[in-house]
Amino acid sequence: MNGADADRLAIEVKGLGKSFGRVHALRGLDLDVRWGETLTVLGPNGSGKTTLIKVLATLARPDRGTVRVAGMDVSASGRSVRRNVGVVTHQPLLYDELTGRENLTLFARLFGLDEAGERAEAAARRVGMSRRLDRRAGALSHGMRKRLGIARALLHEPLVLLMDEPESGLDQEAQSLLQQIVADGSTPSRAVLMTTHSLETGIALGDRLAVLAGGRVAYSAPAESVSASDLRRAWSSHAETAP
């Protein structure tokens, strides 16, 4: 791959290996996401989707291979990578005893953002949480907490959005908001990598789809060229190879 190709890549993963004891979560995974693109990663339980997100977000160290996010190596430039990625996980990653506003302001300040209060309000507005911002996070429903978790990930307007099954626990209205956020995230200067169990969501939100199995990319295709039945076939033929 030449320099011009590398410049077009928001995420570049080559030969990524990651093990937890005897469990090999990722085995020489190769994958890339271009700027302006949304890659949806599908796969059965244990196929390595969450581990991939953790490595890209610098929450887990790769054992082998090279991983670059926004042009930076995750092992060598962890802080710079974190400044440029927003991460949405299964859990909203909030403090239950703090209000939504206090949670978002805390994380805005940890990101060193000016006018943290305004940033918190703007992020809450994007996920439709303005009116509930002064409620204790622990008193909110799972879906509302999940929305706040998405707001936390958007606070610093990241260039690369990493989302691990973001649609779980969201109602119909919140799923439409998520669709909008993913669309905003895949403008030419941004990129999104999203994992999901839902084939329909994967096709609807992704520009490209990849199915992980056994810690590797087993199938990859542009979203417009695949149907849910194609994906289901790819999924089931590789499900047995999960570690």
Binding site: L59, S80, Q91, L93, L94, D96
Partner: peptide, 14 residues
Amino acid sequence: DNGSLQALMLAPVG
């Protein structure tokens, strides 16, 4: 339990 340690680890600080 809140998973909030992960959120702290995602901040761009050492």
